[in-house]
Amino acid sequence: MGLEEHLGDGILFTTLEKAVNWARKSSVWPFGFGLACCAIEMICTFASRFDLARFGMEVTRASPRQADLMIVSGRVSTKMAPVVRQLYEQMPEPKWVIAMGACASTGGVFNNYAIVQGVDKIVPVDIYVPGCPPRPEQLIEGIIKLHKKIEKESLKKKREL
């Protein structure tokens, strides 16, 4: 049945790094964490039409302890900033961050007292997704970019960090 019939017995050679990164990128578990407008588009991305399950990512975790990826979806207010930072620190390594939308990337149209001008001031960001809010396709593009980034990551370097 299926692929197995054609393969027969055999072994496969690869580097440990490649194998680990391949496993990591194929099942990134995002953190179910919504802030503002972009969260709505993020949920649309998880839902049936855009179906993030195709990338092994439909398991959103409600707890930061079980998540690998934090999608900062929306504007981060100064009151929320310490919470975001704490949630990030509660996530176990390896972890990645996507800044979704203009507000999370730069503050967007809200250049004022209440909004943190870019979430990269409080947590390290791997991928910036532009748009206000980004379409689900854009977010998926960002996620694919992140997958490529994970594939190229060096285990040694990550450990030294």
Binding site: T78, K79, G107, N111, N112, Y113, A114, I115, Q117
Partner: peptide
């Protein structure tokens, strides 16, 4: 109610800085 307890100033006063970063 909206800002955190340790916030200083009253943001909607007209003499409160409008922008956070220089545009």
């Amino acid at each position: 109610i909206l800002m955190s307890e340790d916030w200083e100033g009253h943001p909607l006063r007209k003499d409160f800085p409008l922008t956070k970063e220089e545009v």
